[in-house]
C-alpha cells in the first residue's frame, strides 16, 4: 500500500512541476525574438563595389538585405550560393527591388573590383559585389560575427575558410536569420519573402 501511495505522490509532484512549467511559459519573462538584437549591420564600414565606387552601410540600410561572404577562387559553395540568390531574385519578380543582395569578398587581395564585376554580374547585376582593404573587410566581418580565415596550401597558394550561410538582415540592420544550402529552394524563398514582409 505504501508503494502505491508513494507512486501517487510522485505523480502529483510531476503534475505540480508541469503546472509550474506551463505557468512560467505563460506568465514568465518573454524571450526576445531573434530579430530584436543589436543592429550589427548598421555598424560603419567602407568598401568598394564592383564599379569601384565606395559602398558603405548607408548603401543597403533602408531595405532588407541578404549577405554572402565568399571568394572567387571557390568552385562550389560560393557560385552555388550566388546562383541560388539569383534564382531567388528571379522568383521574387517585382519584389526583388525590396531586397539588396550583397556578396562580400573575404579574399580582397585577389578579388579586385574588376573580378567582382564579372563574377557577380554573371549571376545577377542587381547583386552588389564588395571588396576593399583587407583590414576593412576584417573589421566589417568581425563586427557582424562572420568568420573567415586564410589557410595556406602546400603549393604556396592559399584557400579561404568562410561562413557558408547567407545572412538575412532587416532594413534597420538587425540579423534576421540565415539561408543554408541544405534547405530546399522553397524554404529559402519563403524566408526571404518573410524578411521582405516583416523586416
Amino acid at each position: 500500500m505504501t508503494g502505491l501511495r508513494r507512486l501517487r505522490g510522485i505523480l502529483w509532484l510531476l503534475v505540480a512541476i508541469a503546472a509550474a512549467g506551463a505557468a512560467f511559459l505563460a506568465f514568465g519573462p518573454r524571450f526576445a525574438p531573434a530579430n530584436a538584437g543589436e543592429a550589427i549591420y548598421a555598424k560603419p564600414f567602407s568598401l568598394v563595389n564592383q564599379d569601384g565606387a565606395p559602398f558603405t552601410q548607408a548603401d543597403f540600410l533602408g531595405r532588407p538585405s541578404a549577405f554572402f561572404y565568399g571568394f572567387s577562387h571557390c568552385p562550389d559553395v560560393c557560385p552555388t550560393a550566388l546562383a541560388e540568390m539569383s534564382a531567388i531574385l528571379e522568383a521574387l519578380g517585382p519584389d526583388a527591388d525590396k531586397l539588396q543582395v550583397v556578396f562580400v569578398s573575404v579574399d580582397p587581395e585577389r578579388d579586385t573590383p574588376e573580378i567582382m564585376k564579372d563574377y557577380v554580374e554573371y549571376f545577377d547585376p542587381r547583386i552588389a559585389g564588395l571588396t576593399g582593404e583587407l583590414d576593412e573587410v576584417t573589421k566589417m566581418t568581425r563586427d557582424r560575427y562572420i568568420f573567415f580565415e586564410k589557410v595556406p596550401t602546400e603549393d604556396g597558394d592559399y584557400q579561404m575558410e568562410h561562413q557558408a550561410s547567407i545572412q538575412l538582415v532587416t532594413a534597420d540592420g538587425r540579423f534576421f536569420g540565415t539561408l543554408a544550402a541544405e534547405e530546399g529552394f522553397e524554404v529559402r524563398l519563403a524566408k526571404v519573402r518573410r524578411l521582405i514582409a516583416e523586416g
Partner: peptide
C-alpha cells in the same frame, strides 16, 4: 563541370 562566371579562376 558547372558553368562559372567569365573570369572564374576555378571550375568545379
Amino acid at each position: 563541370i558547372e558553368e562559372a562566371p567569365p573570369n572564374a579562376p576555378v571550375l568545379g
